[in-house]
Amino acid sequence: MTEPAPTLPELIDMQIRTSGPMSIASYMGLCLTHPSKGYYKVADPLGAAGDFVTAPEISQMFGELIGFFVVTLWQQMGSPKDFTLLELGPGRGTLLADLLRVACRADGFRDGLDLRLFETSPSLIAEQNARLEAYEPKWIDAFEKVGRGPLIVISNEFFDALPIRQLVRTDDGWHERMVGTNNGNRVFGLNPTPIPATAMPEAIANAAPNSVFEVGLASGEVMKRLASTVSTQGGAILAIDYGYARTQTGETLQGVRKHKFADVLEAPGETDISAHVDFEALGNLATSAGLAVQPLATQGEFLRRMGMDQRAKALSAANPGSAADVTAAKNRLLDADQMGELFKVFCASSPGLDPPGFA
């Protein structure tokens, strides 16, 4: 009789037994993007039946305002006849569908559009295709495959899902936190070899004992590649995510399952794992590539500057029976005690452009 294929938890535990404890980055990578068993390969994480709800699923206004942002930049670049619009992790395609419904009203936008999507989930790719087929989307698996002409990149809750490393300050310096096993259970531990102090950022050099520093090497690599392309071809990068404006210590690694916080070690492949984004680090990489970085805005600030209050009034006037739902969605996206303050909006662009929505 054929032995059943090992589950993802079994594969992870087997690798730890064979090769020793793994970094949190390696663990996150296996949990989220294992080729056949990873969370984003087998789960449908979005919506009430999934694990979380994203801003585009809350209201059409979110995507519509980003559509206005994109078309404004396109016009500032001279309305190029060939340009690429790339979304990172497009979910169900809701954001792009709302965005393109607005942007394609501009003369020439649809004709010049080369739509690219970076996605790893087969089920979500099917949903994206169903919503976006009319725009002839192309799916890419590497950031070098972005087409010709200026490049406009958008992402919502993408960078937070990229693997991080965690470093912990002890009496004898910084040590990397690892995932190992103890009595058959997955547990955290520290690599006994300290990391040279010279390798640590100046901003956290004097951190207190037991401080945790999270390093987004994968996020940095994505930003570096995209910023290099935008620097060469022209365009902009817009990233909306939860994170912090300045490089700092703090433990933000978290698991979410069925809309509740969950132990990140408990159910590999069944739990969404994420961490806050270090926007200062991403901005430094974009600046090094020659891009202009806007002052970081909160989601509430950005959407208000883009006209969400006015759009909500117009929608409510056009659909009086839905006015209460429109107001509730607007408040959820804007209010400080909901998504308005936690989520930040980052933009890096070619020098000379004036991205709307920023101070």
Rank of each mutant, 00 (worst) to 15 (best):
E136D: 13
G112S: 09
F143S: 01
E127I: 01
F118L: 15
A134R: 15
R116Y: 09
S121K: 00
E144V: 01
V146E: 04
P122Q: 06
L124I: 03
E144Q: 08
L132Q: 00
A142C: 12
D111Q: 15
S121R: 00
F143K: 00
G108T: 13
V146F: 03
P137N: 08
S123A: 14
V153P: 06
R105F: 08
R110F: 10
N129Q: 13
F109D: 09
L117Q: 10
L132G: 04
G149P: 05
E119W: 07
P150K: 05
R110K: 15
A142Y: 02
R110L: 15
K138W: 06
A142V: 01
G112D: 08
R110C: 10
D141W: 06
I140H: 01
K138E: 13
G149R: 02
L132N: 01
P122C: 08
L115A: 11
V153D: 03
E127Q: 15
E119G: 09
C104R: 07
S121D: 02
Q128Y: 02
G149T: 04
E133V: 07
R131S: 04
R116H: 14
E119Y: 06
Y135Q: 05
D107L: 11
R105P: 01
A130P: 00
I152Q: 03
G147A: 05
V102I: 15
A106R: 13
S123N: 10
L113D: 10
A106E: 14
W139C: 11
D111V: 11
C104G: 05
V146G: 07
I152Y: 01
S121F: 01
E127L: 14
L151P: 03
I152D: 00
L117K: 05
Q128C: 10
T120G: 09
A130C: 06
S123R: 14
T120V: 15
F118N: 01
I152H: 03
K145C: 08
E119M: 11
L151S: 03
Y135E: 05
C104L: 09
F143A: 02
E144K: 05
G112N: 07
R131G: 02
L113M: 14
C104F: 07
E119A: 11
V153N: 05
D111H: 14
T120R: 08
R116E: 11
G149I: 06
D141P: 00
R105G: 13
E136W: 02
E144M: 00
R105M: 13
S121E: 01
E136L: 10
A106T: 13
F143H: 03
